[in-house]
Amino acid sequence: MSSSEHGIAHVHRDDIGSRLGMWLFLFTELILFGGMFIVYAIYRFTHQQEFHLAAKELNTLFGTLNTIILLTSSLTMALSITALQKNQKGLSIFLQLTTIVFALAFMVNKFFEWSAKFHHGLFPGSDVLMEKSNGEILFFGLYYIMTGLHGLHVIIGVVLIGTMTYFTSKNRITSDNYVRLEAAGLYWHLVDIIWIFLFPLFYLIT
C-alpha cells in the first residue's frame, strides 16, 4: 500500500476499478437507450402495420453504409489499444485518428439522411407528418429522438477519442498506463452496439 502524497486526496491507481466504474457508467447509457427501446417495442406491438409503413420511408442504403462505417471504426478503435500495448505509439495515434474520421463520416451520412427527410417535410410537428396516422407519428418521433441521441453520443465519442489522441501524443497515455484509452474504447464500442440494434429496428422492418 503506497502512502499518498500529503495534501492531495489519495493518489491510488486501480485499473480494474477504473474499468469497473466505466462499465457501470456504460450500463446507465445502455439502460438510457433501453428505456427508448421499451417505448419502441410497445408502440411497435400496438401499431404494427403503421410502423411497417413508416419504415418504408427510411433509406436502407444509408443505414447499411453507416453500419459498415461504425463497425469499421470499432475495429480501428480496438486495434489502436493493441498498438499501444505493443508500444507502437505512432500506429496507435493513426488508428485513433482513423476512428475519428469514420465517426465524422457517419455524422455526414446522417446529416444527408436527415436533410432528405426534412426536405420531404417529415419532421416533428410538420404538416406532412401530422396528416399521417398515429403510428407513423410515433415512429418518426422515436426515429428522430433515438438516432438523434445516438448521433449525440457519436459526437461525444469524437471529442473523447480526440482527447485521448492528444494525451497519447503527449505521453500521458502510454503503453503501461492506458486505462483511459481503454475506457474511451469501451464507450465507443457501446455506441456501436446501440447502432447494431437501431439499424434493423428502424431500417429493416419494411
Partner: peptide
C-alpha cells in the same frame, strides 16, 4: 441507483422533447 435511474432520465428527457419540439411520444 445505477440501473434504475437512467429510466427516469430518458423518460423525463422524452417529455422535454415532447414539450419543446412537438414530438409524439
Amino acid at each position: 441507483q445505477v440501473l434504475a435511474t437512467p429510466i427516469i432520465g430518458i423518460t423525463l428527457l422524452l417529455v422535454i422533447f415532447e414539450r419543446a419540439f412537438g414530438f409524439g411520444i
